[in-house]
Design a protein around this nucleic acid. Structure first.
Lengths: 253, 253
DNA sequence: TAGTGGTCTAGACCACACC
DNA sequence: GTGTGGTCTAGACCACTAC
């Protein structure tokens, strides 16, 4: 990282700095390596710490850096590909070791959920929480909404709170025949609780995947899964779990 | 927006401010309405302008606000759903009015592209630029890489630069039989040129969709499409263009 | 206790849109 | 011009980690 001064340019300093740092990461650092601290870096480039931080934020958003308070800034490994949609229809959790049931509750849902499910506002809904881990790191937190009418086999006593209840709901759900499955991906920011589950700070960028699972006659479940945007690349396609074109997006623009 | 003071809390001010503003947007503002300017808002909440801006940035990231230099901050409309993957296989641009060809060049590609295509580093590749418009607003910019070997019917004279050349490449591509199609979605930041195309500033958050189109024997094309993350919700699924569960993600967490 | 990144302040000036 | 959001500075203090 030989550069010590920024020449005068028309583009913002933080943007130029991002480029310089990005090239330095490519050529002079390896994954996991610790960068100099922010005060040193700012001094080295002759900018205020806030400006330097703007550049680091960009690089963190792009998955190039990882910053941890009290520890330092390290070079991030390439994003992990996580399969979120295959062309085979499959109920959530069907033979899926990636997701870990956490707990389950039964209550009337938020209005937005009731509307999306197409159920009455007063109909009880099971809310199953699951978490997804990849390479020893939490990558996603999910809320799965299942109308009680989708799983009529479950009596209240069959569905205790906790992990056992969650497994019971998933088991009953698999008795239905899945006809359609639709997803949407959008950018969001981590709520306080999600941030804790994902080991990030509140407001961290996340990819929100909303999936509607439907039988021939009705919406059987709605999943809202929140993925860490810094560490994840979401994959959709024929191949399922197969990794492909690692890093293509980074170098192809 | 009656709140004038922030009580002492443990959570960061900008995060609390985000929540307060978010609720105010829900209850007291309608789409397109202009907010007070940043200096006024900061004074009203008794914080520095930088802190207020942190809160506004979050809300812009979530697609709630739209800020334009020299104009002001307005309440954003709900994100538009853009279909990026149906379960039907389809070549890019096949009967697709959403994408507008811009131009085309023929050259040796960046190494990352050659690697993803599985071609030799020296093999020429057509690079087709396309842009996608939705509701009179640019939503995506695409680079479509097509190895010259995928479109052998194209002689150099058949593929002039410019829009006509782009159309020629797409036409030839449709002669092949598509066997597989895989996509990945990740968060990125807009490069200078993409930012201009998308009417944003450099570094604006974007959703990068990388798609590999394959015949039985080889990768026929690679698409890297950059979508505005603030205004877009990417949809995948059986239904194709059909809108579904509008706003579910927003209210379901 | 020392060192890190995270938050916050109070200013200044710039680039851009609109009148 | 006038007013807007965008950039940048030079500080201060806080929260967290690791020794």
């Amino acid at each position: 990282m030989g550069t010590t001064q920024l020449e005068a340019v028309q583009e913002p300093k933080y943007w130029h700095l991002r480029t310089v740092l990005s090239e330095a990461l490519d050529s002079e650092f390896s994954v996991g390596e610790i960068l100099p601290n922010e005060r040193d870096l700012a001094a080295r480039f002759g900018v205020a710490r806030a400006t330097l931080r703007q550049a680091l934020e960009q690089l963190e958003l792009e998955g190039r850096l990882q910053r941890r308070r009290g520890v330092g800034t390290t070079v991030a490994p390439p994003r992990v590909g996580v399969a979120v949609g295959t062309r085979r229809h499959a109920w959530p959790g069907a033979a899926d070791a990636a997701w870990q049931p956490v707990d389950s509750t039964r209550a009337t849902p938020p209005p937005a959920v009731a509307e999306a499910l197409g159920t009455g506002r007063d109909e009880p809904v099971h809310t199953v929480r699951r978490s997804r881990v990849s390479q020893d790191q939490p990558v996603a937190a999910e809320l799965l909404y299942v109308p009680a009418s989708s799983v009529p086999g479950l009596t209240t006593s069959d569905a205790p709170s906790g992990e056992a209840g969650a497994r019971a709901v998933l088991r009953e759900l698999r008795r239905l025949t899945l006809a359609r499955q639709e997803s949407a991906v959008e950018l969001g920011s981590a709520r306080t609780e999600e941030a804790r589950e994902l080991d990030r700070l509140p407001g961290a960028p996340v990819l929100v995947v909303t999936t509607r699972y439907a039988t021939e006659s009705a919406t059987a479940a709605l999943s809202v899964a929140t993925y860490r945007a810094d560490t994840c690349r979401l994959t959709f396609g024929d191949a399922g779990d197969v990794e492909f074109h690692e890093g293509a997006a980074a170098g192809a623009r």
